[in-house]
């Protein structure tokens, strides 16, 4: 087991390395490059630009630049924002909690609701409920997140006035826990929509697979009530493959968070990326790219560890 995890860790590091190359290449090969922000400033001559480029090391070959950036990154220096010269890690760190909070709430909703829909769909497979859940999930996967956000704002904020149309807290008032929660409901719901659909589909398939297993027949042959058979014997087995799904879904969730944050003016990493793109703030953009990939890889790694903990077959072998 330890060997397996070590192997996965090594694999993740290799992937992270490739990821960094891709990110670096995308940013530096794109037309304009990091220098383009200065080209917009009036009064800068060609010579000034060249001097700036030299100071920033942008006139050297790309592999050399990459190597420098990488060694600094490994030393913990993620660079400084072009906008306000703050360390990139601090800039990202300031936005991280909002995004994680939003993602956490969405994961909670999607796991609870998705698992429930999936289990019910599997138990009553081919019933009206199951049909509606199947079609509903496919439609939910087709709705653009931002549009669903607009509809939710229109319905619950503009029309009914139940939920605030954006922001993390009410501006200018004391921020209480309830106020946080009140603001969290709508964006979490919007971000969760796609994930609920995905979870319910996978859960249904997994549960259907499990309830046809021999050990479920054994449990029934013992005379156990159906409730015990399903929720004690079947669910635990059906949930095992879902742990991996939770890890795999992190990039999708992060992408969804970006869009949701935009619609709900939520001060998270997604908004930061958009703002940084507008300012051509390369170090921050690169930092966010690396950070999101890191989050995805960590997600997979934790999913592996958690699966090993939850599945007795992996634990002692």
């Amino acid at each position: 087991m330890a060997n397996f995890l070590l192997g996965r860790l090594l694999q993740s590091l290799v992937l992270l390395f490739i990821v960094s190359i891709i990110g670096f290449a995308v940013l530096h090969l794109a037309p304009g490059g990091p220098l383009s922000q200065f080209a917009l400033v009036p009064g800068l001559s060609k010579e000034d630009l060249a001097r700036i480029a030299h100071e920033m090391g942008l006139d050297r070959p790309l592999p050399v630049q990459y190597w420098e950036w990488l060694t600094r990154l490994l030393g913990g220096d993620w660079g400084h924002s072009y906008r306000d010269n703050q360390p990139v890690l601090a800039v990202i760190g300031g936005r991280l909690s909002a995004t994680l909070e939003l993602m956490g709430a969405a994961i909670l909703i999607s796991v609870v609701v998705g698992v429930w829909i999936g289990v019910m769909g599997a138990i009553r497979s081919y019933s009206i409920f199951d049909m509606l859940a199947t079609v509903g999930a496919m439609v939910a996967l087709s709705i653009p997140t931002f549009w669903f956000g607009l509809i939710v704002i229109y319905a619950f904020s503009v029309h009914l006035g139940w939920l605030p149309p954006g922001n993390r807290t009410t501006v200018g008032s004391e921020s209480t826990f309830l106020d946080y929660l009140h603001h969290l409901i709508a964006p979490a719901m919007v971000l969760a929509l796609v994930e609920v659909a995905i979870w319910s589909r996978y859960m249904r398939a997994s549960m259907l697979d499990v309830i046809n297993q021999d050990y479920i027949r054994t449990a029934r042959a013992k005379g156990l009530p159906e409730r015990t058979v399903l929720w004690h014997h079947a669910l635990r087995n059906a949930l095992l493959p879902m742990i991996a799904l939770a890890g795999v879904e992190i990039p999708t969730l992060l992408g969804g968070a970006l869009v949701t944050e935009t619609v709900f003016t939520w001060p998270g990493m997604g908004r930061l990326l958009l703002d940084s793109l507008g300012y051509r703030d390369y170090p921050v953009v690169m930092g966010i790219l690396m950070f999101s990939a890191l989050l995805a890889l960590l997600g997979n790694l934790f999913a592996d560890i958690f699966a090993a903990v939850a599945d007795p077959r992996i634990r002692l072998t």
Partner: peptide, 8 residues
Amino acid sequence: MTSLNPVH
């Protein structure tokens, strides 16, 4: 091999 629940 398959008639016992693997997680209990």
